[in-house]
Design a protein around this nucleic acid. Structure first.
Length: 288
DNA sequence: GCCCAGGAGTGTG
DNA sequence: CACACTCATGGG
């Protein structure tokens, strides 16, 4: 019996550095296999992605017909990254940083998955964030293939008790997730998808467990607002070290908005990546 | 063992 | 508005 139901396709994505893009910590459900191939969950599909020419070769393990569109969207293939980099490179500091990771791209996650993921990401390191998300998915997400589960939908997660969420290793974040499920629903999510960045950010900011930083992360990685600029500890260090700027969240955010404009999100990712790369703790993107 | 983690919520000065 | 404190746990 042939169990192969998957299918393969190619996508042109240029520039693209898979290791940087899927391993830098902007998204959490990808694992690098020994051969350099990246395996991850995209919606209700399992994908194996590897560099191939000026793009990627993708294997969809479920063979879902919509896989190609889903991965294209996920990798933001319609972003003209070269043009964005050129625009950002008018800043000398950023120009240097970009040249270090030419193929680092932003990804476009599912909005709900991104929201929950970054609420979980508060005061936790990346290995732990990944573990929490995998446990949450295998406990409450729909099974896709074997041990692989989709990220739990609002309805899926709605069924979880705080005790069960604590059991997933969420710690004090369990209550945030519980409150989030009570606050959010698909209609609200749909409304938020139509908002522009400033209002979206304010709306997200009102949700339990969502502060300035998480609101910007979700705006950027989930809702695809490229002008969003999340300020975390790494960005603080980078802005201090490279520009001599420091201060409140609002101060740093405003600085970035003025300096990087509509593509502040990409600027953030290059700054974030490089700042971690030269730290002894954050240098390696894989083994964490 | 010890320190820190892609912070947020709450209270106080 | 600026701080201080707490939050529950697991990686390194």
């Amino acid at each position: 019996m042939d169990l192969r139901t998957g299918r393969e396709f190619r996508l042109r994505v240029d520039p693209l550095d898979l290791d940087a893009t899927l391993g830098c910590g902007q998204t959490f459900r990808w694992e690098r296999e020994p051969d350099g191939c990246w395996r991850g969950v995209v919606g209700h599909d399992i994908c194996r992605v590897q560099a191939h020419g000026d793009g990627v070769l993708v294997e969809s393990l479920t063979g879902d017909a919509r896989s190609e569109e889903a991965v294209s969207r996920y990798l933001r293939i319609s972003d003209d990254v070269a043009a964005i980099q050129e625009a950002l490179s008018t800043d000398e500091v950023l120009s240097t940083g970009i040249s270090e990771v030419r193929g680092l791209r932003l990804v476009k996650m599912d909005e709900w998955e991104c929201l929950v993921s970054y609420v979980l990401a508060t005061y936790a390191n990346i290995p732990r964030i990944k573990r929490m998300i995998e446990t949450l998915s295998s406990s409450f997400g729909q099974r896709i293939l074997r041990d692989d589960h989709a990220f739990p939908s609002i309805d899926d997660l709605e069924k979880a008790t705080v005790e069960e969420l604590v059991g997933c290793g969420l710690g004090y974040r369990a209550q945030y997730v519980r409150d989030l499920c009570d606050t959010m629903d698909v209609n609200e999510l749909r409304r938020m998808k139509r908002m522009r960045y400033p209002r979206l950010r304010d709306c997200l900011r009102e949700l339990p467990g969502v502060g300035d930083k998480v609101a910007d992360c979700v705006s950027l990685f989930g809702f695809g607002k490229l002008e969003a600029f999340p300020v975390d500890v790494w960005i603080r260090r980078a802005l201090q070290r490279l520009y001599g700027v420091e201060g409140s969240y609002a101060t740093l955010h405003e600085f970035a908005a003025r300096k990087f404009g509509a593509y502040a999100g990409y600027a953030q990712e290059y700054l974030f990546y490089n700042e971690r790369a030269l730290s002894p703790k954050g240098g390696c993107v894989f083994s964490e």
